[in-house]
Deep mutational scan, measured.
Amino acid sequence: QIFVKTLTGKTITLEVEPSDTIENVKAKIQDKEGIPPDQQRLIFAGKQLEDGRTLSDYNIQKESTLHLVL
């Protein structure tokens, strides 16, 4: 699982696999929060994550925290 922290300070927990794409993660966030993926920007280690890449591409491991910017 990974954590996604929103600007409001809320933390969302997501069940993911390293092979999941960023697009996939955004879809999971939409399921939980109702935020359309095209409004979501995910930041990890100061980098904006691209939809077509996977979590493992960015070396995002379990218990990692991503930041969600709208």
Results as ranks from 00 to 15, higher is better:
Ile35Asn: 03
Leu7Met: 13
Thr11Val: 12
Ala27Met: 12
Asn59Val: 04
Ile43Ala: 06
Phe3Gly: 02
Ser19Arg: 07
Gln61Ser: 10
Lys5Ser: 09
Gly52His: 13
Thr21Gly: 03
Glu33His: 07
Phe44Ala: 03
Leu66Tyr: 02
Lys32Asp: 03
Glu63Lys: 08
Thr21Glu: 03
Glu33Ser: 11
Phe3Gln: 05
Ile12Asp: 00
Ala45Gln: 15
Gln61Ala: 10
Arg41Lys: 14
Ser19Leu: 09
Asn59Leu: 07
Leu49Ile: 04
Gly52Tyr: 12
Gln30Arg: 15
Ser19Ala: 09
Lys26Met: 06
Gly9Met: 04
Ser56His: 10
Glu17Arg: 07
Ile2Met: 05
Ala27Arg: 13
Arg53Asp: 05
Lys28Phe: 06
Leu42Val: 04
Ile2Cys: 03
Ile35Gln: 03
Gly34Leu: 05
Arg53Leu: 11
Asp20Ala: 06
Val16Thr: 05
Glu63Val: 04
Thr6Trp: 12
Gly52Pro: 06
Gln39Ser: 09
Val25His: 00
Phe3Ile: 07
Val16Trp: 12
Asp57Gln: 08
Glu23Gln: 13
Lys47Val: 13
Thr6His: 06
Lys28Gln: 09
Ser19His: 12
Pro36Asn: 08
Lys32Tyr: 07
Asp38Trp: 13
Thr65Val: 15
Gln40Met: 15
Leu68Ser: 02
Phe3Ser: 05
Ile12Gly: 01
Val4Met: 02
Tyr58Val: 02
Gly46Pro: 01
Glu50Gln: 10
His67Met: 15
Val4Thr: 01
Gln61Trp: 08
Lys5Pro: 01
Lys62Cys: 08
Pro37Ser: 12
Ile43Phe: 14
Asp57Leu: 03
Leu70His: 11
Gln1Asp: 05
Gln40Phe: 15
Glu33Cys: 12
Leu66Val: 10
Ser56Phe: 10
Gln30Pro: 02
Leu70Cys: 14
Leu55Tyr: 01
Leu55Ala: 03
Gln40Leu: 06
Leu66Ser: 01
Gly34Cys: 07
Thr11Pro: 03
Lys32Thr: 09
Thr6Asp: 08
Glu63Tyr: 15
Leu70Ser: 11
Leu14Cys: 04
Gly52Met: 10
Gly52Trp: 13
Thr8Tyr: 12
Thr11Lys: 08
Thr54Glu: 04
Leu7Arg: 10
Ile29Val: 06
Ala45Phe: 10
Ile43Met: 13
Ser56Arg: 10
Phe44Asp: 02
Phe3His: 09
Ile22Met: 04
Leu7Val: 13
Arg53Tyr: 15
Leu49Trp: 01
Arg41Asp: 08
Thr54Ala: 06
Leu49Pro: 01
Ala45Cys: 12
Leu55Gly: 00
Thr65Trp: 08
Gln30Thr: 11
Gln30Trp: 12
Gln39Ile: 11
Ile2Lys: 01
Pro18His: 08
Leu49Ala: 02
Gln40Tyr: 14
Ser19Met: 09
Lys47Ala: 10
Val69Asn: 06
Gln30Val: 04
Ile43Lys: 05
Pro37Lys: 15
Thr65Ser: 05
Phe3Trp: 07
Glu33Gln: 06
Lys10His: 10
Leu7Trp: 14
Gly46Cys: 09
Leu55Glu: 00
Lys62Asp: 09
Leu7Cys: 15
Gln39Arg: 12
Ile22Gly: 02
Glu15Gly: 06
Gln48Gly: 06
Asp51Ala: 07
Ala27Pro: 00
